[in-house]
Write a protein that binds this DNA or RNA. Structure first.
Length: 435
DNA sequence: CATCATGATTATCG
DNA sequence: CGATAATCATGATG
């Protein structure tokens, strides 16, 4: 054992000389005989060389034993720290500059976007309402194309999110595994070569950076996928599909039965949206389009107006049947129910006049609550129809827009008269129609 | 393929 | 922010 230690010391000395740090480290000479002649030195060198040459002949156990001896040598920690220091000095100067890695703005951008798209962050379980709507639509037999598209979009988004999360997890796990593996390896190697804890730390940092760059790629491609999906969805939306017959029916019904004030409230819109299995904004679109197009060319809508007026009137009649039927069913004297506003058509004032003449009544600006008035409209139409008015009159016939004012816009009944109840209040209608 | 119907988008306004 | 008006783009129709 003594022999071994001696050899190790010699080797250590050699390696140190190689590093030219002799000045800083005063290692005791291998053998005690300092000022001896060259003979003893030669002897030593020969001895060492011999040892080295025969080192391959030694058994593995022997080598392990020597290694152990080396590890346990009292000078080992000092040597180790010195070597680490040197490494530190030579290595750090090279790569010290590129260490700084401030939060990448692009990465932040990606993160924010993923968060905004609902890919990252908590599961957004808001699908229940839409799902229910879609289910209802399917049940009611509606086409519900938009709902389907919407849920399709959500499903795809969910898919993307799942992939993203699993990938992210995978990366994280791999990163951790790799980090611990490298750390163990380095720790292991630190027994045979100078590796300071700082170096390990730095290595871990490098690994993390590598992995986070991979993560950024993942995030980027996820973002791209979402963007593609989104654009496709928007395209799909742009590729309009006509609403189902049923939906237009419902919308028209509402429109013509509220012709005097075709501005559904938010709740009404929701209701309609649910009934038609379309979105609220689609309802808004529809009403926007309908209003403008109706106003632009009322003549074109007469038929439709009559149709739906009759339809809703039939419904209303069920509710308010008796009173109306008794007094008015057969009389074409349509009470002019009082427009809540006058209607100035851009190009069809004649229609207004014709309406007046047809109704055999003069126009009066009596103000009636809009809702009541819509009922009146309805009733008036059914009356007109039952009275035998038809399209033969050349299009510019009976359904005149009451709610339109002189500026070409619909107006609420300016001062909602005492009758505000939306539920048609048969009495008021009756009184109104009874002329 | 021309034309109209119609849902969606955009610009603008109050 | 919602309404309007104009416009786009596609679907339906003949």
């Amino acid at each position: 054992m003594d022999d071994q230690a001696r050899i190790m010391q010699s080797i250590g000395g050699v390696s140190l000389t190689g590093h030219s740090v002799q000045g800083s480290m005063t290692l005791p000479p291998p053998h005690g005989h300092d000022g001896t002649d060259g003979d003893g030195r030669k002897q030593d060198i020969g001895d060492i060389l011999h040892q080295i040459m025969t080192i391959t002949d030694q058994s593995l156990d022997e080598a392990q034993a020597k290694k152990h001896g080396l590890n346990c040598h009292r000078m080992k920690p000092a040597l180790f720290s010195v070597l680490c220091e040197i490494k530190e000095k030579t290595g750090l100067s090279i790569r010290g500059a590129q260490e700084e890695d401030p939060p990448d703005p692009q990465l932040m951008r990606l993160d924010n976007m993923l968060l905004a798209e609902g890919v990252a962050g908590p599961e957004k379980g808001g699908g229940s309402g839409g799902g229910a709507a879609a289910a209802a639509a399917a049940a009611s037999g509606g086409a519900a194309d938009n709902s389907i598209e919407h849920s399709d979009y959500r499903a795809k988004l969910t898919q993307i999110r799942q992939i993203y999360h699993t990938e992210l997890e995978k990366y994280e796990q791999a990163c951790n595994e790799f980090t611990t593996h490298v750390m163990n390896l380095l720790r292991e190697q630190s027994r045979t070569r100078p590796i300071s804890p700082k170096e390990i730390e730095r290595m871990v940092g490098i690994i993390h950076r590598k992995f986070s760059s991979i993560q950024m790629q993942l995030k980027q491609s996820t973002c791209e996928a979402v963007m593609i999906l989104r654009s496709r969805f928007l395209d799909a939306r742009r590729k309009r599909r006509n609403f189902s017959k049923q939906a237009t029916e419902i919308l028209n019904e509402y429109f013509y039965s509220h012709l005097s004030n075709p501005y559904p409230s938010e709740e009404a819109k929701e209701e309609l949206a649910k009934k038609c299995s379309i979105t609220v904004s689609q309802v808004s679109n529809w009403f926007g389009n309908k209003r403008i197009r109706y106003k632009k060319n009322i003549g074109k809508f007469q038929e439709e107006a009559n149709l739906y007026a009759a339809k809703t009137a039939v419904n209303a009649a069920h509710a308010a049947a008796a009173a109306v039927q008794n007094s008015q069913a057969n009389s074409p004297t349509t009470p002019n129910s009082g427009s809540s506003g006058s209607f100035n058509l851009p190009n069809s004032g004649d229609m207004f006049l014709s309406m007046q003449s047809l109704n055999g009544d003069s126009y009066q600006g009596a103000q009636v609550g809009a809702n009541v008035q819509s009922q009146v409209d309805t009733l008036r139409h059914v009356i007109s129809q039952t009275a035998g008015y038809n399209d033969a009159l050349g299009g510019n016939t009976m359904y005149s827009p009451h709610g339109l004012n002189a500026n070409g816009g619909w107006q609420d009944a300016t001062t909602p008269s005492s009758v505000i109840s939306p539920t048609e209040g048969p009495g008021s209608v009756h009184s109104d129609t009874s002329n």
